[in-house]
Structures are given as structure tokens and as C-alpha cells.
Amino acid sequence: MALKTDDLRVYYQTLKGDVKALDGASFTLEDGEIMGLAGESGCGKSTLAKSLILLKPPMKYVEGRVRLDGEELPIWDDEKMNSFRYKNVSIIPQYAMNAMNPTRKIGKMVKELLKSRGISPGEKRDELEHRLDLVDLTRDVLSMYPIELSGGMKQRMVMVISSLLDPSLLMADEITSALDVSTQKAVSEMLVEFRDKDFIKSLIFITHDISILYQIADSITVMYAGKLVERAPTEEITGRPLHPYTKLLISSLPKIGAKYTEEKLEGIPGKPPELLEPPEGCRFKNRCPKKEEECDEEPPFREVSPGHKVACWKVKKDVS
């Protein structure tokens, strides 16, 4: 198993108090698995990704453990964490379009970055060029400045840079959000290829767009208000979602062939809770159609069938 997190809590420090953006995440990621992480804005997806690589104020580590390939990741210790960054864990950030220094030629930047990590750039030269071919970039981009590339090209360049040292875990944070639909597909498929070619062992693909995950992910994890609510293999979760939130989320996707001229596409009424002082118990209860008294107590994140975990009191009853 590549990654195992155990009850990970990371809060944001603000003047009003702690914002509980990631409140107890436990999951495991197998070698070679592509995990889709879905949820609406502000549910803690990016916080999870960031806390696994660069946990900086105002983020605050509260508790939890992370193991990667059997080794403990010291995510709370910026200095110790540094030797894992890039080599073991890497990220394609949300801001990939602006991730490169605007006043350095891309090739030079990569060279300086590698050198600063104690890796000889000459050794990686062939690999770098090979990967540029894979993502359909010409080698000329190395002698260009970021501004000379289009948004999609920058995105692919950052993909190549981030995965260059063959990290065990790569996180792609909302990388398709700024792209048009056809480019989205191409970029996602390149990441799958990276996995197939063993450049990366496993991938966490963060998005708020479940339809992309359906195409590339092996498993999908759904987050809501700082908590994991459901995790299952892709086929299972799209075919048989159990958590009321996941159900509503999937039913709100447009379906192929359906016409929405007469009936409107359903949304989920209400808003996610304030994470400064989240409600007791299930955090979805105020928007949940199945809410009952027991929901005031926090539901455990349990396995209800093999590989399918849900955090909802109602599910157990449905199954049994």
C-alpha cells in the first residue's frame, strides 16, 4: 500500500478561531491506484493535498499520521519533510498556470531546481525530453519563458516537472478546472499514462467535476465539509452511491441523452456549514433529506461492503 493516512486533522488559524478544514481523514491508497477526490469548494480537498506536501501557516497540524511506502511522513516538520518532497511526494498545484518563474527560461529553472535538490541535471536530460514528447511539447519550450506558452502548455510543462523524479505519490490539484473540455480529457489521460508507465506509483486527482473522475479514476473519495463521506471503487460509487450527499451529487450531473428543456436539473438545496464552528454530528444533516435524530451524533466512516466505506447512520439500515 502506497499511502495510509490515519485521522489526519489540519486546521486553518484565523483571528476568529480555527477553521476545521480537514477534520479526521483516514484512507489508504494502493500502489498504482488513481484516487479521485471530489467535493464542492471549501470542503478540504486542497487542504488534504497541501498538508501532505507543504504544511505552512496559516495551516496548522493538529493530529494524525501519514505513512508513505511504509515510512512515516513528518508532515508537521517543514525541515524533515523536505527530503521527501519532490522525490517521494509531489504536486501539480492548482495554480499550475503561474507556477513557473516568469523571468527564467523554463529549462534553466528546471536545471536550477534539480541542482538545488542535489540531482545532476545532465542525468535527467534524456528523461525530461522523453516526457516532453509524451505530453506533446516540443523541446524548444525549454528555451522559452513561461509567458510564451499557452495555458494548456504550461499545465503540461508543470506536469512534466512535478513528476520528473518519479515520486511515489503525485497529487493533481484541480488541474483541469481552467481548461476546456477537450483539453481536460487529454491532460487527464496523460496522467493515466504516467501511471501506466510507472513514472508515478499512485495519484490523487482532486476535482469538483465527478464526470472526469468517472473516466480516469480507479476509486473515488467524496469529501464534505472537512470530512470523508464516502469512498469506493469508481464503478461502485457511480452505480450504487450510498451516502445521501453522494447520491445528490451524482444525480445533479446531466445525463447523456436526457433533455432538460422541460424539467430542470436538480441541485442540492442549502449551503455547506461554516467550518469555524461546524455542527455536532453529521455535517450534512442540515441539507440531508433523510435526517433523523441519530444524525446529531457523529457517524463513523465504516466499510459497508468490500472496499466501500461510508459515513452515514442511515446506510447501515439500508444494507442490513
Binding site: 506536501i53 523536505n82 495554480y95 503561474n98 516568469p102 527564467r104 535538490r117
Partner: peptide, 23 residues
Amino acid sequence: DYSHYLESLGAPRSLVRKYAFRN
């Protein structure tokens, strides 16, 4: 963003500061 990206990839402070200073 470019500074954060370098930090995420574990670049030492000296490189991040060098870029920041230049810009």
C-alpha cells in the same frame, strides 16, 4: 505562486529567495 511551487518541490530557501530577489 512560483515561490510556493518551488517550496512544494523542496527547493532550498536560497533558490526561492534568489528568484524572489531577481523579480
